[in-house]
């Protein structure tokens, strides 16, 4: 491999890594959750990573918690509890694609809140768990 090519490849790789680590939760989506949270809870004082963590690991009236499939460390690869299929890490620190697409997040909240809570998640629950996942560092 010639030197120029190697240099070009390294630069591309660096750019990819840099842009990946800048991936963010869409601001519009977070704002809409905040607005909805304020309406739902009069004393709402912002999302909490700490609450999100406890909620992620707790069971909510069914056999499953979020951590049943995603493990108690969202930076780790999970495993679907019934089918055994591997699930990519949830924390953006480990998987920069996560939490970057609002429609995808809503789709999975709909599916998984139904399975784990037997109801839809509230805006506070969603915001808290996003705060928890984004607070994790590598």
């Amino acid at each position: 491999m010639n030197l120029q090519f190697t240099a070009a490849m390294s630069t591309t790789l660096l750019l990819v890594v840099a842009s990946a680590s800048e991936a963010q939760v869409p601001t519009d989506y977070l704002k809409s959750l905040e607005t909805a949270a304020r309406v739902a809870e009069s004393g709402f004082a912002g999302f909490s990573a700490q609450r999100g963590r406890a909620w992620f690991n707790a069971r909510h009236g069914t056999d499953w918690s979020c951590s049943t499939c995603h493990t108690e460390d969202p930076r780790a690869v999970g495993r679907h509890v019934t089918t055994g299929r591997s699930i990519a890490a949830m924390a953006p620190a480990a998987n920069p694609e996560r939490l970057t697409d609002a429609a995808k997040m809503e789709k999975w909240f709909k599916r998984n809140c139904g399975d784990v809570l037997g109801r839809a998640c509230t805006p506070v629950e969603k915001g808290d768990v996003i705060a928890y996942l984004t607070s994790l560092k590598r």
Binding site: T82, K107, K110, R111, N112, G114, D115
Partner: peptide, 12 residues
């Protein structure tokens, strides 16, 4: 799909 073998697998 909303009751897909015991899980909610809804799509748009």
């Amino acid at each position: 799909l909303n009751q897909h073998f015991g899980t909610d697998a809804s799509v748009s």
